[in-house]
């Protein structure tokens, strides 16, 4: 049984009820979990759904918006252009994300996983709420390059949206808040907690000897930042990529020199799927990521104290074990869950 925070109990009950109304038997099995829930062993979520409880209609509206290029100026780009389900909602194989007019963004699209546990968004944490976060891609000239007012205008003219807003919020009136909250609901339900790693944690599977050795190394070298079970501690840190920072990272938000080159520790869930890696997508394989930690850590004034002694000692055999462990973080249920796909 999942641990359920009291705040979410009504939502969970609603969701359980709704999912039990699904039609085919097969779906019942696949959709056994409610849309929003707290997986076993997870901490409490950030609380940003407090004024925006997940409902089936709100989630469905959010999903429709997420996959609809109507949010972009020239109707060519939707959220999934850069956040693809098969890549765990990251943009696979693009180091810098592409938006309208093929303009290149300056950062790599992160995977969207377990965002209900985050209270700040973007590599630098500049966005402070899951509801306001989508304003950035919608209005950014290198992403969707649209205005919220024009999105509202277009949605109002569509034949489907007014009734979807009525189902979600009880009124046909399309507001920016309605749009943003629906997207927040959809994204908050992108919960990944059924990887082999999770099954092992929950006593439902066993690691191979190699994976297990990898896990031991991981716990000794990586979890101080990639904290279990979210595999991020959600803080901002410099993991030694550079000494001079083309992207100031967290300092862009705080303007503090002591934050230069610090980025939000990314989750490692589904990490095999969400290549390339790092805020600018500079490393295209996990092998190169491990090589970074064992041979190219650059010391600078903001290097994380835990890395201040430089490269980690990781042998080739240990590297193979670590890679085997990282593969257990892939959650097939998540990337194939039809509820998260375009309908």
């Amino acid at each position: 049984m999942s641990k359920i925070h009291f705040l979410y109990l009504p939502i969970v009950i609603v969701c359980v009820f709704i999912s039990s109304c699904e039609k085919s038997d097969k779906e019942i099995k696949e959709v056994a979990l409610p849309l929003f829930y707290i997986p076993d062993g997870f901490p409490n979520p950030s609380g940003q759904l407090q004024n925006n409880p997940v409902t089936t209609a709100g989630f469905a509206l959010g999903r429709k918006l997420f996959y609809d290029p109507i949010l972009s100026k020239d109707s060519t780009v939707n959220c999934s252009t850069c956040h693809q389900q098969f890549g765990s909602f990251s943009q696979v194989d693009h180091s810098l994300s592409h938006g309208v007019n093929n303009l290149l963004g300056t950062r790599n699209s992160p995977a969207l996983i377990n965002l209900a546990w985050h209270s700040e968004f973007f590599w630098d944490g500049g966005s402070n709420h899951i509801e306001v976060q989508p304003i950035a891609p919608i209005t950014n000239p290198v992403e969707m390059h649209e205005t919220l007012s024009n999105v509202i205008y277009k949605l109002n003219r569509s034949s489907t949206y007014p009734s979807l807003f009525r189902s979600a919020y009880g009124s046909d009136t399309i507001t920016s808040q309605g749009i943003l909250r629906a997207l927040a609901q959809f994204m908050s339900c992108l919960i990944s907690a059924n990887s082999k790693y999770d099954q092992v944690r929950n006593g439902k599977a066993f690691f191979t000897a190699t994976e297990d050795s990898g896990y031991t190394i991981f716990k000794s070298k990586c979890t101080s930042c990639h904290k279990e079970p979210l595999l991020t501690d959600l803080t901002y840190r410099n993991n030694g990529l550079d000494a001079h920072f083309a992207d100031a990272g967290r300092a862009r938000i705080t303007t503090l020199a002591t934050d230069s080159g610090k980025f939000k520790v990314p989750t490692l869930r589904n990490i095999v799927l969400s290549y390339p890696y790092m805020h600018d997508g500079r490393l295209n394989t996990l092998s190169k990521v491990i090589d970074h930690y064992r041979s190219t850590i650059v010391l600078s004034s903001t290097i994380d104290p835990s890395l201040s002694s430089g490269n980690m000692s990781i042998t080739d055999a240990e590297k193979a074990q670590l890679l085997a462990f990282l593969s257990t973080l892939t959650d097939q249920t998540f990337i194939t869950d039809k509820r998260f796909s375009a309908q």
């Binding site: 925006n52 500049g126 919220l148 507001t175 920016s176 909250r181 862009r252 938000i253």
Partner: peptide, 24 residues
Amino acid sequence: KTVQGAQTGDLDPTYGMVWDWNTG
């Protein structure tokens, strides 16, 4: 108020008085 997500009324983001990349 700034950390409470999408707002309505005078705080509606359509008035162009919000920052998106650094919320506020």
